[in-house]
Design a binder for these strands. Structure first.
Lengths: 150, 150
DNA sequence: CTTTCGAAGTTCCTTTAAGAGACTCTGTGA
DNA sequence: TCACAGAGTCTCTTAAAGGAACTTCGAAAG
């Protein structure tokens, strides 16, 4: 229910959750990413309540993650990822990787990704933007930054 | 409220959300990651209701993301990341990166990460595990995998 | 022109989860 | 034997999710 708003916390994880942390939001982004851009498509594919879908779409548009785009002279709209929203796909890809590894079980991953640059079915790897070496939880040390609280 | 369970969907994003998608869960993982391992510490730091914290911790333990570890002869427990849980930190790091870029504003990021391997303050970059080139939403094509529905 | 249609929401009602805070339980050690 | 501290549990209120029927707007068909 998340009545507590995370947006005011001095934490980028909390702030990100404030934008896409509500139930369904990541699944909506996934669908929009793969080309399901219309209200009824999303509703049918997800099985989400129309009321909640409306709320989520508005929230995502308000936060600049999705953009509402008319596609007809009638009042008909499509939802598309903005630049800000497109960068959230990184998150979806990493989520997919974890789910594939830990939750897919015998059947294997439901979806595979082909990396266009090399043509191979692949997965993603986190690397230090500075030195290019692997960068995971244990490879890192947290320090207070300029926007720290207090 | 998320009454709809995502765990049965043929989608690794949905399944991952079933494990850590409830409100507060990513923030609990963040805190445990940085060394807040006890109930009262977590409760005080997050300001979460004790009831909800209990529910979340049990859920995360049930799903093998956290491990409950006694630290006293009295019934006292600490929560620690399992191997499965440690890999979720990747997700937190990517979330942090997005929040730092798009939500931190004037003040700048509240937390900085130093990559131990190179000693630099850095951020994370997604690369293809196969060829090492950048791998983001637009660089990738989705195909049905062995565990696809239907 | 009136009727029908389709997409995109709105509204209303029920059920369930989150928030808040007091209460319990269990060993310890003063 | 009393007080304490940590880790929960209980109860009540409030708000959000689910479900399903209803509205609205313009287009095209008769």
């Amino acid at each position: 229910m998340q009545r507590t708003s995370f947006g005011e916390m001095a934490c980028s994880i909390a702030r990100t959750l404030d934008v896409i942390g509500e139930p369904w939001s990541p699944l909506i982004l996934r669908d929009v990413w793969v080309g399901m851009n219309r209200f009824d498509q999303l509703q049918a594919d997800l099985g989400i309540s129309r009321k909640v879908l409306t709320e989520r779409l508005n929230h995502l548009v308000d936060h600049g993650v999705l953009e509402r785009r008319p596609y007809d002279k009638r009042p008909r709209y499509e939802y598309h990822l903005t630049a800000k929203g497109s960068e959230l796909v990184d998150l979806l890809i990493v989520m997919t990787g974890w789910g594939d590894k830990w939750l897919a079980g015998e059947a294997g991953p439901p979806v595979l990704y082909r990396h266009r640059a090399c043509g191979e079915i692949s997965s993603v790897d986190l690397r230090c933007a500075h030195c290019g070496e692997p960068m995971h939880g244990g490879d890192v040390e947290a320090l207070a930054g300029p926007g720290a609280a207090g």
